[in-house]
Design a protein around this nucleic acid. Structure first.
Lengths: 144, 144, 144
DNA sequence: TCCGTTCTAGAATATTCGCTT
DNA sequence: GAAGCGAATATTCTAGAACGG
C-alpha cells in the first residue's frame, strides 16, 4: 500500500488524509492547556481522561460538534481504541477517582506518523458477506 | 437543541417517525422570528431563503450543528426537496435579490402530518453491488 | 509531452491555453484590492477565502458570470483543488471565523507557469466506453 | 470540443440512540 | 451494569449530470 516510513501519497499526489478525529485526539491529548483533564500516560502508550463531566463540557466542544462523553467514546471504539481496565478500577474498591484510560497500539506519544495506521471501522456488514448468496450453486471455477 | 442523528421524540415519549431535520425545518419556516430570512411562499407550497449569508450564520446554528448553507441544501436534497427555478432568476434580468426557493410535494403549510411521507434517501451503494460476487482471479489448480 | 520548465507547446507551435478560470483565479488571489477577502497563505502554497458571503457577492461577479460560492467551489474541484481542513474548525463553540482554504500542488505563488499543469477533469463516461469501437454489424455504406 | 454554471448525488466521517454481550 | 457495536441520521467535501455558450 505504502512505503515503510514514508507518508502515504495517493495517485493524485495529495497525502492520504488522517481522519479529523485522530488529529484532533492527538492534539487534545498532547495539549498542555488541557492536561489536567486529558493527558498521556507516563510511558506514552495510552491516555487518561479525568473528570468526565468537566472534560465533556469544557474540552470536547472546542474540537467537536458535541459535548457528550458517550459520543467521544463511540468514536474511540470506531477507531479501535479500547478502554484499559486497571486492577484498582476493576476491583472491589470503588474508584472515586474519575479516571478513564484508553489505548490503541498505534497511538503512541512521539510517533504521530503511526496515526496513519489507525483505520476507522467500515460500515455495516451485509448479509451477503455473512453467508453465501447461492449456497447450492457450485463455484464457477470448480470444474473437474 | 435536539440531538443530531437521533430519532425525534414526541411529547408522549414514543419515537416519532419524522426525522429531526424535517421537524426542525417545519419549525424554522413557520417561525415568525426568522420570517425575514426563511418563510413560506404566499400559497404555502414552498419556502424561500433570503440572504443566504445571514441565514447561514444567524439561523442555521440555532437549529443545527453547523452554519453552512451547503450542508442545509444537501439535507434538503437528501429528503427529496427540489430547488424552484423561476423565470426571473434564470433570465437575463440580473436578480440581485438573494432569494432561493425549495419545494417538496409533502411540505405544505398547514399539513404537518404530511411530513411523515417525506422519506430520507437511503445510503450509498452497498459494497456487494460494487464488487463482483465471483472475482475473476483464477484458482491455482487451473491448468491450460 | 513537453520540455521540463518550459511552456507547454502543442504540435502546431502554439502554447497550450490555460483555461480562463485558472488565470482569473491567479489574478484574483494576488490582487491586493481583494486581499481582505481572498489571498495567498503566508508560504504561498494555498489561498484563503474570508467571509464567504461578502466574497461571493462582491468579488465573484467581477470575474465570473455568477455570485455563488458553490459554483466557485465546483470549479475548484473540477480543476483538482482540495479544501484544506484545519483542526481548529469543527468545534461547537466559537463556530468559526469564516475562513476557507484551498490548495493545488501546481498553484504556487510566484510560479504562474505551473498553471499549465492544472488540468480540468473530464467527464467519466466516454462514448467509446459505452459501445464497442468495432461493432459486429459492418456498415453497408462504409467507404474509404 | 471544451469550458462554465447550476442543481443534485456519492462517499466518507461524525453524532446520536438503543441494543448486545 | 458497562463496554462495545449496529444502525439511522447529520455534516462535510467532492463528483455527476444537464444545459448552454
Amino acid at each position: 500500500m505504502e512505503a515503510a516510513g514514508g507518508p502515504a501519497v495517493a495517485m493524485d499526489g495529495y497525502p492520504s488524509p488522517v481522519p479529523a478525529f485522530l488529529t484532533k485526539l492527538w492534539t487534545l491529548v498532547g495539549d498542555p492547556e488541557t492536561n489536567h483533564l486529558i493527558c498521556w500516560s507516563p510511558n506514552g502508550t495510552s491516555f487518561h481522561v479525568r473528570d468526565q463531566g468537566r472534560f465533556a463540557k469544557e474540552v470536547l466542544p472546542k474540537y467537536f460538534k458535541h459535548n457528550n462523553m458517550a459520543s467521544f467514546v463511540r468514536q474511540l471504539n470506531m477507531y479501535g481504541f479500547r478502554k484499559v481496565v486497571s486492577i484498582e478500577q476493576g476491583g472491589l474498591v470503588k474508584p472515586d477517582r474519575d479516571d478513564t484510560e484508553f489505548q490503541h497500539l498505534c497511538f503512541l506519544r512521539g510517533h504521530e506518523h503511526l496515526l496513519e495506521h489507525i483505520k476507522r471501522k467500515v460500515g455495516p456488514l451485509l448479509p451477503a458477506q455473512l453467508q453465501p448468496l447461492f449456497p447450492s450453486q457450485p463455484q464457477p471455477q470448480s470444474q473437474p
